[in-house]
Every structure is written in structure tokens, then in C-alpha cells.
Amino acid sequence: MAGKPRLHYYNGRGRMDTIQWLLEAAGVEYEEQFIESKEDLEKLKKDGALLFQQVPMVEMDGMKMVQSRAILNYIAAKYNLCGKDLKEKALMDMYIEGMMDLGEMIMHHPFKPADAKEKDLALIIEKATTRYFPVFEKVLKDHGQDYLVGNKFSRADVQLLEVILMTEEEVKPDILSKFPLLKVYKGRISNIPMIKKFLQPGSARKPPMDEKQFADAIKIFY
């Protein structure tokens, strides 16, 4: 019997976040099954639930799906958030790969050695402001539309807002100071009802990791 999707990950920011964002944007109710110990993770492995022995894993539509991009592609296609034709899908894929590259840099930052953190943070700021955000500022300027692709709300908008907020919260609060169109875009996408609800206090959205969560993640995955 089909039920709500069940999300298996630890209780902190990481690779499950974008999946959660996309489900929220699609208005899909889901359950979270937190991995709280190395034993929880080992049990999933021994039960054969993890195809490649790693999470995130999402139980959905009778499947136990792993690999973040595969899960995101499935959800986007199922809920019509992936573009109307091959050209739009190709544009989205290109944009999203860039967003995920920046997101990966931010996600890995807490795991850097203490003496490398300052240099790493400077590199993230440089890449965000000279490589990634200029692309999306130009896209919005060139087509003059409300959304990133096809003038329709899509997974590209969900994932761009996520990485903008992640960069502001974890790297530099005024990171958009030189990107006026992205600032307006951020406000517009943030006010879409499903997104606005997810951004409210008390929602299932995870805050930036604190030292305890970081230590817990290390114990579970390393």
C-alpha cells in the first residue's frame, strides 16, 4: 500500500535537504526517519535498503531510492517541475549542476581542517560571486521573466532559492549585494505559498549545523 514518502537521513543539513525542498514545493506530505547512530545506518545496509551502502534514501511509490540526483529527477518529473520539453530540461540540468557545485562547496566547508577554513570560505565567496550567481543574474536579465526557465515555477527555482539561502546563512549574509535581480527573485520565490510555509519557524527545514550536529554526523558516517 502506497503511503507518504519516507526520508532516511540524519537530523541535520546535508544531501537530503534539496529532496525535502522539492517535496515541499510540490505540496507532498512526507515522513522523516532519522538516522541517529552508526547502528541505525548499519541496519539499513544489512537490510539491503541502500543500493550503494549510503544515504540519503527515500522510500516512495514502492521503491527505495538512493542517489540524490536520481531521487530529485523522479520527484521533479512526477510533479511536473522539470520543464515542458527537452530544451527546457537541458537548461535546467545545466543550471542545477552549477547550483549543486556551489552547494557541495558549502556543505563540505564544516569538514575542512581548522587551519584551512578561512581560505576555503574565501574561495566559496569568490566562486559564488564570480562564477555562479553572475550566471543566474544574467539569465534573469536576458529573458526578463519571473522564473528561471520557461517562465514557469520549476525545480530550478526551488534549488536556486535553496542555494541562495544556504550561501547567505552559512557563508556571507550580503552575498547578493551586487545582484539586484537575484535579490528581487529571492523575494518572489520565497513568497510562493508552499515555499513561504517551509520558510516559517517551526517547519521541517533544517537550520545550519551547529557543533553538536557536526559531531553527531561524524560519529554516524565516519
Rank of each mutant, 00 (worst) to 15 (best):
P134W: 11
I125H: 10
K112Q: 12
Y132E: 07
D85R: 12
P113F: 03
T130Y: 05
L72G: 00
M105R: 11
L123M: 13
I96S: 00
L81Q: 01
K127M: 10
A25C: 12
K89A: 06
K78A: 09
A77Y: 04
F34H: 12
E59L: 09
P113W: 03
R69A: 06
I106N: 02
I71H: 07
V28D: 07
D40Q: 06
D146I: 09
A128H: 03
I35S: 03
K78V: 13
F34T: 02
M94Y: 07
T130P: 03
V139L: 06
A25F: 07
D47W: 11
V135I: 15
Q67R: 05
D120K: 11
Q54R: 03
L50P: 05
E36H: 04
A70I: 08
L51Q: 14
I71N: 00
I96M: 08
V28Y: 01
M65A: 10
D61G: 14
L165G: 02
I124F: 01
H109V: 15
V139R: 07
D101K: 01
Q53M: 09
K45G: 12
F34W: 13
D115M: 00
F52D: 05
D101S: 06
K119N: 14
K87Q: 15
Q33L: 07
V66E: 09
S37A: 06
E126V: 11
G62A: 11
V28M: 04
F52G: 10
K46G: 01
L123A: 11
M92T: 08
V66K: 09
Y79F: 12
E118P: 01
Y132P: 00
L165W: 08
L161H: 01
S68T: 14
L160K: 02
Q159P: 01
D120H: 12
E137T: 04
G150W: 04
E36D: 11
M92W: 04
D157S: 02
L72V: 08
K84S: 09
K141P: 06
M63A: 12
F136S: 03
G103M: 08
L123P: 00
E104G: 15
F133N: 02
V55T: 09
K64D: 15
N151F: 00
S37G: 07
M57F: 10
A77F: 11
L23R: 01
H108T: 13
K138A: 11
H143R: 00
G83T: 06
S37N: 07
Y147P: 02
A116P: 04
Y79R: 05
L121S: 12
K78D: 05
M92L: 03
L123K: 05
Q159N: 09
Y95I: 10
A26F: 02
L91M: 14
G98Y: 07
D157M: 02
E39K: 15
D85P: 05
Q33C: 12
H108F: 13
E39N: 14
Y74A: 10
E39I: 15
L102S: 03
A26P: 15
R69E: 03
D40A: 07
Q159Y: 10
E39Q: 15
E104Y: 13
I75L: 13
A114Y: 01
F52I: 10
Y147K: 02
K152T: 14
A122W: 02
L160Q: 01
G62T: 14
T130K: 00
K43V: 14
F34Q: 06
E88L: 08
